[in-house]
């Protein structure tokens, strides 16, 4: 395999690393911040389940991104991912809730524009609609879960100490599910643009498991995310969770499960097949923002508990919906121009 592949893939790996650094905090932030779960336990579980989710169930959301624009040259994929990564860096600086999904969609559209390929407006509409729907759905799920938890606590007379024990186990399980859903949903953001141009081959692991080229690519992306979790998420994990309202560990569990369910709904092909086969409305398989999902969940609980709506934060999310993809698209378009005309690289076929 050409060494240049790894150079081009580096922007995707960087994107994966930053996703791990920022989004693992959404899953285990409050649990680690309130010392219910140790960072080491959180990091190991996150890494393991993100990678499993990415390899086993990452293809659904990836196909939707592929339908938006199939980046068919490695240099083009490199720049799409790099533009997304740089946009994320910039949006973090502006204190906007980070969304890798929105950045990569911008990167792909930038590539489409540069390469003169059509952007499927129907697919784009589906993706953007999901961004808006995602925090709202997370909020609704959080409210329902909140009522369910309250009912169980009031009627099952669980002692305080036992409740603490169950919450701790619940946070670990919810974290594992959240990590799986994050890997399944968000690996498309990290590695999706490389799928069409990847020279990777299928790999046999023993005689039991065969990984397709896409799965090998997603495994590499999963490892990059895991490195991000271990190296850079600790600071965020210990501070996140109390940013919107003060969260008890039980409320943190509600928020994490809501977020994980939303990510799972938008990533699970099995669920989609099941719903379609029973003539039920199905969820589109689209990469969504875990940060915005958790904000939606926390706000749902907050509104239910009588806290006022943080319009400023909602406004910042809405600005992110527009600003992040537009900035990434512009950056990608301009950078592709330089890559093609200054470095004489093939950025599309």
């Amino acid at each position: 395999m050409d060494i240049s592949f790894w150079f081009y893939l580096s922007s995707g790996l960087f994107l994966g690393w930053s996703l791990g650094a920022s989004d693992a905090a959404n899953i285990f932030g409050t649990a680690v911040g309130t010392k219910m779960v140790k960072f080491r336990t959180a990091a190991i579980i996150s890494s393991l389940f993100i990678t499993i989710g990415a390899v086993y169930a990452g293809s659904g959301a990836s196909q939707t991104l592929g339908a938006l624009g199939s980046v068919n040259a490695l240099a083009g994929a490199f720049m799409s991912a790099l533009a997304a990564a740089l946009t994320i860096y910039w949006t973090v600086k502006l204190s906007l809730p980070v969304s890798t999904s929105q950045a990569i969609v911008g990167g792909i559209i930038g590539w489409n524009l540069f390469a003169g390929k059509p952007t499927d407006i129907a697919v784009l509409g589906k993706i953007v609609g999901t961004w808006v729907f995602c925090p709202v759905l997370a909020g609704i799920i959080a409210v329902l879960l909140y009522y369910m938890v309250r009912f169980v606590i009031r009627h099952c007379h669980i002692t305080l100490i036992r409740q603490d024990c169950y919450t701790r186990i619940g946070l670990i399980l919810a974290g594992a599910f959240g990590a799986y859903a994050l890997g399944a949903n968000n690996i498309a953001n990290v590695m999706g643009v490389f799928v069409s141009s990847s020279p990777l081959q299928a790999v046999d692991i023993g005689s039991l498991l065969t990984l397709s080229p896409t799965q090998v690519l997603f495994l590499i992306g999963g490892i990059a995310i895991s490195v991000g979790v271990f190296t850079y998420s600790r600071g965020l994990m210990t501070t996140v969770g109390n940013g919107i309202i003060r969260m008890s560990p039980l409320m943190a569990w509600v928020a994490v499960v809501s977020q994980a369910l939303v990510l799972f709904l938008f990533a699970s092909q099995n669920l989609q097949h099941f719903l379609v086969s029973h003539n039920l409305p199905s969820f589109p398989l689209v990469p969504v923002s875990s940060s915005q999902a958790i904000i939606g969940a926390v706000m749902g609980i907050g509104i239910l508990k009588g806290c006022s709506i943080n319009w400023g934060l909602l406004g910042r999310i809405a600005v992110g919906w527009i600003l992040t993809p537009v900035a990434a698209a512009l950056l990608c378009y301009i950078s592709l121009f330089f890559l093609q005309n200054v470095f004489d690289l093939e950025v599309y076929r």
């Binding site: 336990t41 002692t159 100490i161 036992r162 024990c165 701790r168 186990i169 670990i172």
Partner: peptide, 17 residues
């Protein structure tokens, strides 16, 4: 995970008692 749960349950029981 299993060990973690066991030790958590035994700690919980002791404290509860």
């Amino acid at each position: 995970m299993f060990h973690l749960q066991l030790s958590l349950f035994s700690k919980t029981k002791t404290l509860e008692a």
